[in-house]
Design a protein around this nucleic acid. Sequence first.
DNA 1: AGGGCTTTGTGAACGCGTGCACATGCGTGG
DNA 2: CCACGCATGTGCACGCGTTCACAAAGCCCT
Lengths: 234, 234
Amino acid sequence: MTSRSGRRRIPEATVERLPVYLRLLDEQFDVGVTRISSEEIAELAAVNAAKVRKDLSYLGSYGTRGVGYEVEFLLCQIKRELGLMQEWPVVIVGAGNLGQALAGYGGFMQRGFLVGGIVDVDSEKVGTDVGGVTVSHVDELAGLVAANDISIGVVATPGSAAQAAADALVAAGVSSILNFAPHGITAPHGITVREVDLSVELQILSYHEQRRANARRAATLRAVPGAGRGGQVS
Amino acid sequence: MTSRSGRRRIPEATVERLPVYLRLLDEQFDVGVTRISSEEIAELAAVNAAKVRKDLSYLGSYGTRGVGYEVEFLLCQIKRELGLMQEWPVVIVGAGNLGQALAGYGGFMQRGFLVGGIVDVDSEKVGTDVGGVTVSHVDELAGLVAANDISIGVVATPGSAAQAAADALVAAGVSSILNFAPHGITAPHGITVREVDLSVELQILSYHEQRRANARRAATLRAVPGAGRGGQVS
DNA sequence: AGGGCTTTGTGAACGCGTGCACATGCGTGG
DNA sequence: CCACGCATGTGCACGCGTTCACAAAGCCCT
């Protein structure tokens, strides 16, 4: 009875690391590694070994003391927990540059997902082929979602259309949304939303970059305390 | 002296939210809003109001009690703190689908960044125009970085080339890397790296989706207690 | 001009995630 | 068959981030 996958709740922080473990285990498996220790996983994932063990222990006791983890078996368990034993069809809203890139993204279908449809408001784009899938009009979204039993939608529209796209997805019956548009979206309770904003990521980098620059400047000033005229530095 | 921007250390969690505030404040400013309360910001950013105030207090006491925050002024302060008073040139490695999408990404240059160069290993792509920028060969990366004083690099290659791209960026003198490739990269200490993996995001959604499905199934089983005889619930 | 209303800024408590350290338990070799 | 060694699994303490609750403080209205 406890073997059912909906076991205990897994901390969100762990859920966010499981895909990383999955990826690196996949790579190790391809190279022929059959057994792996938490230490090695930690090394590859750049995290603490104890954290790896704790994370994996949420899936069950699938390691062997004194030995480590069976790579293939562990892969399977993580996939199961993440719901990747099945292929999830995904619908992409927006067939622009970004939508096309996502549709053609290598690590997309290779990892448990397939493009179940692409829609766009622009009737110019409707009918064109993007990564092997024909672009449909956004009006057909609901039909597409129902026909393919799609529960995950990806927003790849300009920021101004993001909320409308999200609303359309929710209305169509999607229950998880991945938003790439540079504009936050809101969804009713019960809908899982994840935001991936390129400019947000860049701005975080910008912050650290500026910090580094400031630190350098401060160090220079400290080395040359003249405040006005500066002497030679080395 | 304390007005210098390199003031106190700001928690990473706050740094990750500042760009979100920045974006929504920008939107509000465009709509003509000149003053805004922490409550309103919280509403728009879907976070707690106290968190907003604490986050903003790290920048300084820029609010007016009983009134709120001056939108334009606050915008300026956040930009300053994030290092966005200047435009950061960015170099993109990989001129494939993803690289092209990123180069043409709307919320890119509009938010303090500009494409300082795009490089690719494929000499077929070299010389072509992507979003107004000519693709250079990856061998010219170091020169490009030096000439444009670039410190931020974006990896948009296939997963197999990600580490090589990152190494090339580091060798060229870049100190911050944003990685979109579906493969973790490692960089020397002192280099800031952020990973954005599409499949990781989708897999997290998949987890929640499966959870939802399990919850539904459990609810159904409970409602139809065929397993043993069960009494009515409620 | 002054009182009251509103909203900020922040001290303090809470909760979660992280990391340490060790007991548990399995494989292995003698 | 037993003893040793090694890696897992986990209780516990610590630290960070979140949240509450309230005092400080500015504006507006009377």
